[in-house]
């Protein structure tokens, strides 16, 4: 029986005179049902081209070293099987994929040092910036309930592989954004009962490049090989910040404008939402407004024609929740080491 082969198109890269020069190189690699992308790359390095450079260590999706872009998505090479890619068993970005080929490239949003190796220093620095340890302070609790682990379990699984950072859409336009991994880590400390400085953390995280600069695109949830779901942690940080009274920013004002609109009009009142969010800065929207007016796209600030039936029900729901607050926080199951 002849051995099956797959065509790998690998993005090679070298820095020459401070300039990154990249080109793809083709390799034909034998595989069977068990072959991972990492094994294929090691075979290339051993048999065809010893200069191919990539990081790897544990081969068991624990160390997070072999993060790279495989068929258009950030993944771990050790956790991705060649057969699954070829047979379409796993998600791919079909825009960058041709049938029968496997495309390998370095992670995005980080400078390439050589071939598939990127400079992970900026990524690590952002994690350091959020102060990744429990701090002393007034808000410290000394009793740690088993339930409190429900909040930190999921984010504790992070192996710092950078997949979320690489696929983050906000990072593309704003390289100063703290990013999904560091924000998920920040959530882990904010929700730790032993943390003494929760409110101060939330104030810091509500500033520019923090929780409100996420696009909510969900790429990080799908990219994470360990089920950390960073975007869900970012959303929870936003909720906690507003709960703790950290509301003096555009992001919080925008989020908070919906509740009253729903009870008053039933629909979102866009002109007033703008005013509530931006306040005097609403004047900066003149150009955008004039552009929308050209095609009659300015919504009525008094949308009586869309008034919804039964809004008294909504007001009663709010009143009931005011009287009997409901804890609806999601809890992650005790996933244990190596989950995801």
């Amino acid at each position: 029986m002849t051995q099956k082969t797959a065509l790998f198109k690998v993005m090679r890269g070298t820095v020459i005179d401070d300039q990154l020069v990249q080109k793809t190189q083709d390799f034909t690699v034998p595989y069977d049902v068990t072959t991972t992308v990492l094994q294929a790359l090691e075979w290339i390095k051993g048999e065809l081209d010893g200069t191919l450079t990539f990081r790897r260590s544990c081969r068991a999706s624990i160390c997070g070293s072999c993060g790279m872009v495989i068929d258009g998505k950030s993944r771990l090479a050790c956790k991705t099987k060649v057969l699954d890619l070829l047979e379409g068993n796993i998600e791919k970005n079909i825009a960058s994929v041709k049938d029968g080929l496997i495309m390998i490239a370095p992670q995005r949003n980080q400078p390439v040092l050589k071939d598939l190796v990127v400079d992970i220093e900026p990524f690590y620095q952002k994690v350091k910036d959020i102060v990744p340890f429990v701090q002393d302070g007034d808000e410290k609790e000394t009793t740690v309930s088993k339930e409190s682990f429900g909040q930190v379990n999921m984010v504790s699984n992070c192996i710092m592989c950078g997949a979320c950072y690489s696929d983050c859409t906000a990072m593309v336009e704003n390289p100063d954004f703290i990013g999904p991994a560091a924000l998920a880590k920040a959530f882990r400390f904010v929700s730790d009962p032993r943390e003494g400085s929760k409110t101060a953390r939330l104030q810091e995280l509500s500033k520019k490049n923090g929780v409100w600069d996420c696009t909510r695109c969900g790429m990080c949830i799908d990219a994470c090989p360990k089920g950390v779901a960073p975007m869900e942690a970012i959303v929870k940080l936003r909720t906690l910040a507003m709960e703790k009274g950290v509301r003096g920013n555009k992001g919080a004002r925008h989020a908070m404008s919906f509740k009253d609109d729903i009870a008053t009009w039933g629909v979102l009142n866009e002109p007033f939402m703008l005013l509530k969010t931006l306040r005097f800065e609403v004047i900066t929207q003149t150009g955008n407004a004039l552009n929308l007016i050209k095609k009659g796209k300015i919504p009525n600030p008094f949308p009586f024609e869309h008034k919804v039936e039964g809004l008294d029900e909504v007001r009663r729901i709010y009143a009931e929740l005011e009287k009997n607050p409901l804890d609806v926080t999601t809890k992650a199951a005790d996933s244990g080491p190596g989950a995801g």
């Binding site: 909510r216 919906f258 979102l268």
Partner: peptide
Amino acid sequence: ATCCGAGNLQEH
């Protein structure tokens, strides 16, 4: 049917 909250009410 009112506005769904668009994720914003859900955050708040």
